[in-house]
Amino acid sequence: MVDKVKLARQFIEAIPHSRALNMQLTDIGAGTATIEMPYDDRLIGDPKTGVIHGGAVSAMMDTCCGAAVMSHPSAPGGTATIDLRIDYMRAATPGQSIRTTATCYHITRNVAFVRATATDDDMDRPVATASGSFTVEKA
């Protein structure tokens, strides 16, 4: 179990795009993962307000959901996204880190189902939520 957690963290940190976005895996458990992404001027989607682009939030959601699947005790190995839906509740406050927590709430031999929520410093009002299905790759 400990090895799998370590493996997931190494895997996430070896992903070039996750590194490019400065994503940090701050917590990983049995089917849950938390990733933090600091505010960065390069990721701005609306130059007038400085709000981060939805695409950067999508990248974070996708990575975090994948990490949650890999950390699940029943997942033998890697995973790939089948589909991912993201709902944007509000703009993330410029200057603040975004934190995403994903939960793999059900897993079968072939498919893992995941939900995720992203927030900034105001933890009570989500920035975005996601739900998706992922493949379960044989080890």
Binding site: A14, I15, P16, H17, S18, R19, A20, G55, A56, S58, A59, M60, M61, D62, T63, G66, G78, A80, T81, L84
Partner: peptide
């Protein structure tokens, strides 16, 4: 920097 899976390699889903 767009790579999501360095082993394949493949573009990041995000």
């Amino acid at each position: 920097k767009l790579i999501g899976n360095p082993f394949l390699p493949a573009i990041h889903g995000g």
